[in-house]
Amino acid sequence: MNAALAVDLPALAAALLATLACGTLGNWLVLRKESMTGDAIAHAVLPGLVAGFLVTGTRSVAAMFIGAAIAGAAAVVLSTLLRRVARLEAGAALGLVFTAFFALGVLLLESQGARQVDLDPECVLFGSLETLFYAAPADAPWHAGVPAEVWTLAGAAALAAGFSIVFGKELASLAFDPAHARLAGAAPRFVERMLLAVVSAVIVASFAAVGSVLVLALLVCPALIAAPHARSVRGQILLSVAIGSLLAAAGYLVAAHADEILGTRTALNSAGMIATLLALAVPCSHLVRAAVSRRSA
């Protein structure tokens, strides 16, 4: 395989799969007005991830996954509890809980035992898309050379899409009118808990490769880019994933080849570049919408 492709393809695949996974689920968070919950979970999963490693002593994906999902869900439940017990507004409760969890995670990471987790705090923030590459196996089938992160992300994307398809009608009804859906829904509590668990799982799967900044951007921005143009929930999800994928691919390529394209000394952080593009696209999309409706009016 071409050397450039061996570097670009796995990273591109990871970025696009993360867009599919986070972009899809993000629509539910945005429709529920819980955008910052994604940010909180992205920070809060860290101690669970490290604890999963410390308990099992291996970098077993399953253990870290379970630990992180528990931590993410616990943080959200705790912040809901704090709103009642300490009478904090939602934002303050979220901020208090996720900084505490994240600090604990950083502490664990920097402590001796967890050094072999092979995750430094900087990667947690900014991701490590740049380090993914395809190593053509000598005497194994081709897919043996695909980095594990890509497989994990593929699983996350399948989970997010499957969950949104199977529970789409309940999720839409809960987002539109929670009081009504909680009274009359088929299994509202179950679906809300599942959403929390699936969001946690997808965030965990994504953030080792793309970092917490890009996880947040991917959860929130594609949905908000699509929102002014969408006429149905399904339309919003499809549009958000389509635009998000385009921007993710563009952002990755510009950053990874910045030395050639922008004339910088080195390649740039691609997760950050994608996040910047996505965030910029949100107001642009709204301005386009406003201009279109002015013209037609």
């Binding site: 009359a184 088929a186 929102a227 929930v233 339309g235």
Partner: peptide, 28 residues
């Protein structure tokens, strides 16, 4: 039992047409 909340408690920018919302009554 059907509960119909105050209209002001609902986000009417939600991406849906009238028929989509009425269908939600049939989901249970």
């Amino acid at each position: 039992v059907a509960y119909i909340p105050q209209r002001s408690q609902i986000d009417w920018n939600f991406p849906a047409c009238a028929l989509d919302i009425v269908e939600m009554g049939l989901y249970p």
